[in-house]
Amino acid sequence: MLEIKTKTFKELTKLDLYDLLQLRSEVFVVEQDCVYQDIDGKDQKAIHILGYNDEVLVAYTRIFKPGDYFDEASIGRVVVAKNKRHFKYGNTIMEASIKAVKTYFNENKIKISAQSYLIKFYTSIGFNSVGEEYLEDNIPHIAMIRN
């Protein structure tokens, strides 16, 4: 079971911030062997969607209102701890994130920058590829939209 908590940057505790940065680093930097600037100055504008299993952060996203990241509302930094992926927490955290975009921003159109190997996953939850594949931090990505 995944317990979802939604917080603004100001509502995050020091422990919340530590845990989410640790999870993002564990997956995006270490597991994916990608040196990049994760702490990008955008967390302060985001609403943070935190997914806990037994009080441990195992899934996370951040959402943005239109204009704060893309022209459309957006979801980013989608991450699930490697040892928890078989529980399909990716679906749960994305469902919560899509709902939060509607709740916080009253938006249905959502844009993401998806790692290309996850196109099938994002398509299964209503996103469609737009444009050409591109490299972001030397990893193939594709823009996707959900209406």
Rank of each mutant, 00 (worst) to 15 (best):
H48C: 05
D54S: 13
T13F: 00
P140D: 10
A46L: 11
F70Q: 08
I75S: 13
E132G: 07
K102F: 04
A96F: 05
K5T: 10
I93F: 04
Y104Q: 07
I93H: 06
M94K: 02
K109D: 11
D43E: 13
G67S: 12
K65G: 14
K14E: 15
T123E: 15
R62P: 14
R85G: 12
I145C: 02
I145A: 03
L23V: 11
Y52I: 06
L21G: 05
E26T: 14
K82S: 13
D33N: 15
Y134V: 14
T123N: 14
L17W: 03
C34E: 15
F9R: 01
F9N: 01
V130W: 00
V101M: 02
C34S: 14
D19V: 03
G126T: 10
Y134K: 00
G90S: 14
F87P: 04
E136M: 02
I93Y: 07
G51L: 11
L17E: 12
I142V: 14
I4N: 01
Y36A: 11
D33I: 14
L15E: 15
A100Q: 13
L20I: 04
G90E: 15
A73Q: 10
Y36M: 09
E133Y: 03
N138W: 12
L135H: 02
H48A: 03
N53T: 13
N83K: 04
V56T: 09
L15G: 07
S116K: 09
I145T: 00
I4L: 02
M1R: 04
F87T: 05
I47W: 01
R146L: 07
L17Q: 00
L21A: 04
Q37N: 12
D68G: 11
K111G: 00
R62V: 13
H48W: 07
I125T: 11
I39E: 13
N83E: 15
I112G: 00
H86S: 07
Y18R: 04
E132R: 01
T8P: 01
D54K: 04
L12M: 00
L2F: 07
D38P: 06
D16W: 01
K42E: 15
V35K: 05
